[in-house]
Amino acid sequence: MIPAARVQAAVEILDIVIAAARDDGPPADVVVSNYFKTRRYAGSGDRRAVRELVYRAIRRSGERPVDGRAAMLGLDDAAALFGAGGHAPAAVGDGEVAAGERLIPGWIEGELSPLVGADEWPALLERAPLDLRVNVAKADRDSLLAAFDGAEPTRLSPWGLRLPADSQIEQHEAMLGGLVEVQDEGSQLIALACGATGAVNIIDLCAGAGGKALALAAAAPEADIIACDTNRGRLSKLAPRAARAGATIDVRLLDGGREAEMLDDLRDQADIVLVDAPCSGTGTWRRNPEGRWRLSPDGLDKVVALQAHLLDLAVPLVRPGGSLVYAVCSILGREGAGQIADFLGRHSSWAVHTMPDGFGEDFGRVDGGGRLLTPGSDRTDGFFVARLKRSC
């Protein structure tokens, strides 16, 4: 493909990404992959170059562009090839303008945690490295350092390895053997915040595909862990991952709207309940920058209400003296410190609990009743995590 044809391909992909963001369709990486499945003539260099154009345009535009042409016109080198003939995009028309350049959608700026200043915004959209979590039930980190090219220990998580962003590890023997899992360092720290040791009872209330449940099982092999979720497709991915990791995790699929009824037998049973709640995903923009195009004020209101519901759902599951760990991959105040303040206002028998041994004072910054980790400050994805304790 000539350079102009690559620009046209990027325009076509961006049209699909913009529509998917508007209509809750597949993420950008899936769109790119699907596009090239039907275009076998594109070599690896072409695919890499087009993908780079697509993500440059996405990162440049905090607000959702009107179409792929507007997004691509924002890149000067790409815009110069419009109208070049052949397979190039058509020439720029009268009145046609590029999408505006900004990092953060305007309406979200006021929602950010006060800790996230404008000097940190560029880091929210930098390309993320690839982090692995060593399965400490089967291996130790030092022994695996030499197994991956360019690997280094993560700074905060005692279980983590950091690899270059382009690392291909899907068929690596350590991956296939259950010695490592792909997991951002910040996500590993959420499991660490649970302080799981010995034969404790743990409920992972929003387990998804089970990444944090697996981390907890590795850290506390004697623990009794129940992974719950309402999404059958995501939860079904846990069993093969657990088998590969040598972990024993019970799975409970919940019916939406009947969660409390289906969890009633676990009342007052859990030493630890983890609520890794659905959220805005603002902490993962460096991995999914088009996520900025999916958010809306109404959508944020709905997810904040869901988080409060899940926290309230967790309360009766925790035994007296037990812990509730709340986490979101968000850097927005209402989803983090604000959510915890509201929870404590509703539940007088609960209080903010200190983080466990191993969760250092330099892990994130104090944000209300929890800690906030950000790409600019901690070199992790953006996460808020709080540990709460039920009175005895």
Rank of each mutant, 00 (worst) to 15 (best):
L332W: 00
R390K: 15
L306H: 09
L373G: 02
A337W: 05
L115G: 06
A123F: 07
P356N: 02
P26T: 13
R141C: 02
F82R: 06
A337S: 15
D149Q: 14
A28M: 09
R102P: 00
G74M: 03
G117K: 05
N288Y: 14
P129C: 12
G360R: 12
G345K: 12
S330C: 03
G160H: 04
W107Y: 13
V325M: 08
T230D: 00
D204Q: 05
E173K: 09
V97P: 00
G257C: 02
D381G: 11
V97F: 10
V66D: 10
G177Q: 03
I202F: 09
H353Y: 10
A218Q: 03
N201R: 15
E152C: 04
L205C: 03
A49Y: 02
R234K: 14
A151E: 00
R287F: 12
I108K: 01
V54M: 03
C194N: 06
V352C: 14
G360H: 11
G283D: 04
G86W: 02
A137P: 04
D15T: 00
P320M: 09
G336D: 04
L53W: 07
D255K: 09
G376R: 08
V31Q: 12
N135Y: 08
L266C: 11
V31Y: 10
G345A: 11
M1D: 06
R51H: 09
A42L: 07
T197M: 09
L310Q: 07
R234V: 07
H172V: 11
A79N: 04
A196R: 04
T154G: 15
A5T: 07
G333N: 13
D268F: 10
L253W: 11
I202V: 15
T374D: 03
V303Y: 01
I225S: 07
P297G: 00
F359Q: 00
R258D: 11
P240D: 07
D367Y: 08
G358P: 00
G281A: 04
Q269E: 14
G360T: 05
D140L: 06
V92S: 01
S348K: 15
V50Y: 02
A305W: 08
D312L: 11
Y35L: 02
L372H: 02
R334Y: 04
V366E: 12
D250K: 13
T38C: 00
M262Y: 00
S280V: 01
R60T: 01
E120P: 03
I108E: 00
F363N: 08
G382A: 10
D362S: 11
A218V: 05
A193S: 08
A99Q: 03
A341H: 14
G336I: 05
A308R: 15
L388Y: 08
L295V: 00
